[in-house]
Design a protein around this nucleic acid. Structure first.
Lengths: 261, 261
DNA sequence: GGCGTCAACTCCTATAGAGGACATTGTCTA
DNA sequence: TAGACAATGTCCTCTATAGGAGTTGACGCC
C-alpha cells in the first residue's frame, strides 16, 4: 500500500483515534478516489492487502465489507474485489426512475442537451457545492420520458473540479447519463443523494421549453449528489409536469439480508 | 435460545444453505418479531448468545452487526444490545419530513383522524399488502403542516394482522404517528419503505377536505411500508397541495462511516 | 450525604489459523 | 477436438483467544 503515497497511514499512531479496519478502508478509499485503481479494476487480494497493511485477514475483510456497503467496491466469491463501475446500475436504479403504473415497467428516457456553461449565478447550489471560487458548470437538458412528455433538468457542478466539462461538445454528452459520465471520466460516482420535492407553478421559461401551458403546476424536484466521503458534486433541479407517469424514489435496502424474503 | 421455540434452527443442517451468522440473525429476528424481547429491552450478551448458539464470539458479533444495519437492534459500547424502539427517530426522519426552505428547519405536523374503517375495496394496496382475506383497515387523516396548509392521508393495513385497530377510539390515535404506534403496540416497526410520486389534479373529495380549489394540481405520494423480513404492512397515499414548503425524502447513508467526513 | 475507587459486565478491536466454496485456467485424456 | 480433471487464486465462514474501552453499581471513606 505504500504506493498510495506519503506516510503509511495504517501505522498505529501513539493514540489511535480510529480503528485499524477503518484506517484501512479510508486508505483504500483514498487510493480509489485518486485513481490508483479505475472503476472495474481489481484490487489486490485480501491476503496481499493484509501483508501490505501488516494486519490480519479478518481486519482487511471487515474494511472491505465496509467499502462494499458504501458502494465503493464489489466483491465476487472466487474472483476478487473490484472498484464499482458506472455499470452498477442497480445502485443507480435505487435512486429514482420513471415507471408505468404499478411500478412494474421501467420507462425509457432520452436526454437532449441544451447548453453547458460556466456561471457565477448564486442559488441554493452555492451552499451545497461549496466551490472555492463560487463558479459553477451548469448543464441544462430536456429529458423525454418515453416520448410521452418532457422534463427540464438543470445540473450545477463545482467548476474547480469539473471545468473540463464546459469545453466538451454537447453532442458527446447527448443521450448519456451525466452520472455515468461523472463516474467514468471524472472518477466521481454518485454514491449517495439527498432529494426534496415541491409542488409549485412552473416558471414560464420552463413551461415554454417542455410544451406545457403557462401557469401549469408541476413538481420541482431537487437532487443533491455526493461522491466518496460525501463530497458534494452535483446539485440538480428537475421540473416535472403533471402526468400519469409515476416517479419512483428508491430507498436503499438495509442490511446484508434485507433484500431477501 | 431454546425459548425461541421449536427445533434449534442454528443446528448445522446436513447441507447448510446459509451461513451460521445468518441463521443466528434470522433466529434473533424471529424472537424479536414474536415479542420475545420488546422494543427497548436488552438482549443477552454476546458471550451468552455465543454459548446458547454454540458458536464463537465473532460469529455472534457478525450476526448482531447485521441486525444493527437492518435497524432491528441498537448496540451501545459497554451497555448492551437493545431492540430498536419507536424512539429511533433518526430512522424515521431518514424517511421523509416537511422542512422550511433550505431543509434546515423541520416543520411540526399535527394529525387529525377522520375515520378508521374496515374495507374490502380493491386498489393498488391489495397487491402490495397481500391480505389472505382481501380485507383491510383504512385510516384516513387530515395532517396539518405547521398550521400552514393541510394534507390528506389514507393508510391501508392488512386486516388479518391489524384488525384490532378498527376497534380503537379515534381519539386514542389523534396526534400520534401511526408508525410509532405500529411499532409500539403491534411490534411492527417500519424498517424500510418504497415511495413514488405523481403530479396530478387532486380528486374533488380531497380538495374539498383540505380547503383547496377544485381542479387544483398536487402531489400524490404513495408510501409502501415494510417491517421485519420486508413484510408489507402499510400502504399509504398522501395528497399534498401546491405550497412553498419542501418535502424532504431522506436517503439512508450507506456503510459504517458514510456519515462522517 | 458526597465522592472516589474498584469490580463486574458489556461491547469493540484485533490476531492467527483452518477449512470450505467458487471461478478460472491449463493440461491431459478419450 | 471435446470434455474431464487438477491446480491455483480468490473470497467466505468459523473458531479460539487476547486485550482494550465504555458503563454501571456497590462499597468504603471523608
Amino acid at each position: 500500500m505504500s504506493e498510495a503515497g506519503g506516510t503509511d497511514s495504517t501505522a498505529a499512531p501513539r493514540r489511535a483515534r480510529t480503528s485499524k479496519h477503518r484506517r484501512i478502508a479510508e486508505q483504500l478509499l483514498n487510493a480509489i478516489e485518486s485513481g490508483r485503481w479505475r472503476p472495474g479494476e481489481q484490487l489486490p487480494s485480501e491476503e496481499q492487502l493484509a501483508t501490505e497493511t501488516a494486519s490480519s485477514l479478518g481486519t482487511v475483510q471487515r474494511a472491505l465489507r465496509n467499502l462494499v456497503e458504501m458502494g465503493v467496491v464489489e466483491r465476487h466469491h472466487g474472483r476478487g474485489t473490484f472498484v464499482s463501475g458506472a455499470r452498477a446500475q442497480e445502485r443507480q436504479l435505487r435512486h429514482f426512475r420513471f415507471t408505468a403504473d404499478g411500478g412494474t415497467e421501467l420507462l425509457p428516457v432520452y436526454f437532449n442537451i441544451l447548453d453547458i456553461e460556466i456561471t457565477r449565478d448564486t442559488g441554493p447550489w452555492k451552499d451545497f457545492l461549496q466551490d472555492p471560487t463560487d463558479s459553477f458548470v451548469r448543464i441544462r437538458r430536456l429529458v423525454s420520458v418515453n416520448k410521452e412528455f418532457e422534463v427540464f433538468s438543470e445540473i450545477y457542478l463545482p467548476e474547480h473540479r469539473f471545468a473540463e466539462l464546459a469545453t466538451m461538445k454537447t453532442t458527446t454528452l447527448d443521450g448519456v447519463s451525466i452520472r455515468d459520465m461523472l463516474a467514468e471520466r471524472f472518477n466521481a460516482p454518485t454514491l449517495n443523494i439527498r432529494q426534496t420535492i415541491v409542488c409549485q407553478t412552473l416558471p414560464p421559461r420552463v413551461t415554454r421549453l417542455i410544451g406545457q401551458p403557462a401557469g401549469c403546476s408541476g413538481i420541482v424536484w431537487t437532487i443533491c449528489g455526493m461522491t466518496y466521503r460525501d463530497t458534494p458534486i452535483t446539485w440538480q433541479r428537475v421540473f416535472v409536469p403533471p402526468s400519469d407517469r409515476v416517479l419512483e424514489m428508491g430507498a436503499a435496502p438495509l442490511g446484508e439480508g434485507a433484500g431477501r424474503r
